[in-house]
């Protein structure tokens, strides 16, 4: 009876430990067992400003997906960003994708401004209108060298 008791306690301990580990991985570490579900969209940017895989995609500040991949398009030297958007959210074909920064020093994310078109983008579609990340250094140098009127 005593030994049986101990094994049960050990089992409970191991389960608690594994649950904590899973909680940390999934909730805090954004570990995905089966990959993010949703349809993919692509968008091309002139400059990503250090957009990372896993960065959020937001509409009106609400997260609707994540960045899956950032690659370079070898033909026109633009950054090709693969977005995964959760299914209930539909995006118009004239929506604008822009790369923004959270706060002054925060990390980069993709913001989508909804369009007015009746045609929705299907999986694999491409968001045509994009706005690159704002390069603060460039703005300052423009100001310093007097290009800003």
């Amino acid at each position: 009876m005593k030994k049986f008791d101990m094994e049960v306690m050990v089992g409970i301990f191991l389960v608690i430990g594994l649950v904590c580990l899973a909680y940390l991985s999934v909730k805090v570490g954004s570990f995905q067992f089966v990959g993010e579900s949703g349809y993919t969209l692509t968008a091309e940017f002139d400059k990503t400003g250090g957009l990372k895989t896993g960065a959020p995609v937001e509409i009106a500040g609400v997260e609707i997906g994540r960045v899956k991949e950032v690659t370079l398009d070898n033909k026109n030297y633009r950054a090709k960003v693969l977005l995964i958007v959760r299914p209930p959210v539909k995006i118009q074909e004239d929506a604008i994708a822009s790369i923004k920064t959270k706060g002054l020093l925060g990390e980069k994310y993709v913001q989508i401004s909804p369009g007015a078109s009746a045609n929705m983008l299907a999986g694999g579609g491409k968001i045509r209108d994009t706005e690159s990340a704002v390069d603060i250094e460039e703005l300052i140098s423009k100001y310093a060298f007097g290009e800003v009127k």
């Binding site: 940390l24 570490g29 990390e107």
Partner: peptide, 9 residues
């Protein structure tokens, strides 16, 4: 979630 990431865990 964004700052911690899996590599730290």
């Amino acid at each position: 979630r964004q700052i911690v990431g899996m590599e730290n865990i």
